[in-house]
Simulated scan of single mutants.
Amino acid sequence: MANSKLYKGSLVTIILKLLNESDKMYGYEITQKVKELTKGELKITEGALYPALHKLEAEGLLDVEVKKVDNRLRKYYKLTEKGNKETISKLQELQDYIKTMQVLVNPKLSLE
C-alpha cells in the first residue's frame, strides 16, 4: 500500500487527526509519525504534505508557530478551534465512507 493513491483523498483527515492528538507538530514529524503508525506502509511525501498544510492554514484550520531549533527555523502547526471542529467532521465523514465501502466490498460482514 506504500504511496497508494487511496491515501491522497484522506491526507487532510490524517493531518488533522495527528494534530488533534498532539499539541503541535512540524512537517517532517508528521511524515515520520504516519510512517511509524503504519509500520512503513504509508509514506507521505513532502510534495503532498506541505501544499496540504498551507491550504489548511489558509482556510483558518491551522495556526503556525515558527521556532529556531539548532540554528534553523522550524514551522510548527497547531489546530485552531475551527480546525478542531473540522477534524471531528472529517473523521465522521471518513468513518461513514469506510462503512459504505465495507458494504460494497464485503456485504456479508456488514452489520447493518
Score class of each variant (00 low, 15 high):
L109G: 10
D23Q: 14
L53R: 00
K85G: 07
K108V: 05
L19F: 07
T38P: 03
V12C: 06
K24W: 02
R72H: 08
K75C: 12
G27F: 06
T13P: 01
Y77C: 03
E93H: 12
E36Q: 11
Y76G: 03
K90E: 14
I98F: 11
N71W: 08
I14N: 01
L79D: 03
I88Y: 11
M101H: 08
K5L: 11
Y76S: 04
V69L: 14
D96K: 12
I15P: 00
S22G: 10
E86F: 03
L104A: 12
L111H: 05
L19Y: 01
E86W: 04
L79R: 06
L18N: 01
I98W: 11
G9L: 07
T100H: 13
V12M: 12
E65L: 14
D70Q: 13
G60P: 01
L109E: 09
M1I: 10
T100Q: 10
L53N: 00
L111P: 00
I88R: 15
A52Q: 08
N71R: 14
N3M: 15
A2S: 15
L16I: 09
Y50G: 05
G47R: 10
V64T: 08
S4T: 12
T87C: 14
Q102N: 13
S110Y: 15
K5F: 10
T31P: 05
I44Q: 00
N20D: 13
L62Y: 03
M101K: 12
K90N: 12
L16W: 07
L53M: 00
L62E: 00
A2W: 15
L49I: 04
L91C: 13
Y97C: 09
T13A: 14
L53Q: 00
N71P: 03
S10I: 04
V34I: 11
Q102R: 11
K99H: 07
Q102L: 15
K75A: 11
Y77T: 06
K5Y: 14
N84H: 14
P107F: 02
E86P: 05
D70P: 04
Y7G: 08
N106R: 05
R72N: 03
V105G: 04
M101Q: 14
K43P: 05
I14G: 00
N84C: 14
K68H: 02
A52K: 10
E46H: 13
N3W: 15
E21H: 06
E36C: 06
L42S: 07
S22N: 13
A52S: 09
S22W: 08
K35S: 06
G9V: 05
K33W: 05
T80Y: 04
K24Q: 10
Y76P: 01
E36G: 01
P107S: 07
K8F: 11
P107C: 09
Q32M: 08
S4V: 09
